[in-house]
């Protein structure tokens, strides 16, 4: 793969990243928040197709790529166990804690 194409792809990835970061500041309601994953999915697709050349790679390369996704699934699934089953006790609204605000 030519260095020019690699650089172009990298630039595109940074562009999509900028879109994702910018979108996180938009006032998007909770139901529509999964849409924020779309730029990330686009980046995954670009890395897999262009950098990793999954389409043309041997089976073992595809297996390793799939393993990456499986590991991500493990992280998300087991990591979600806690916040999804956590009991949240309401506390009074408080100011952002800073060392200076703490009592001596």
């Amino acid at each position: 793969m030519s260095p020019r194409r690699l650089l172009l792809t990298w630039g595109l990835l940074l562009g999509v990243l900028a879109i994702e970061v910018g979108a996180s500041f938009l006032p998007i309601g909770r139901p529509a928040r999964p849409l924020l994953l779309l730029p990330a999915l686009l980046m995954v697709g670009m890395v897999a197709a262009i950098f990793m050349q999954i389409g043309r790679g041997p089976t073992v390369v595809r297996l390793f790529a799939a393993a990456g996704l499986l590991w991500l699934l493990i992280l998300l699934a087991l990591g979600s166990l806690d916040p999804l089953t956590r009991i949240v006790y309401p506390v009074p609204a408080m100011e952002r804690a800073t060392p200076a605000a703490n009592p001596p």
């Binding site: 087991l78 166990l81 806690d82 089953t85 956590r86 009991i87």
Partner: peptide, 9 residues
């Protein structure tokens, strides 16, 4: 402070 269920798993 994780949930008990998560800790058990």
């Amino acid at each position: 402070g994780t949930s008990l269920f998560s800790a058990l798993v």
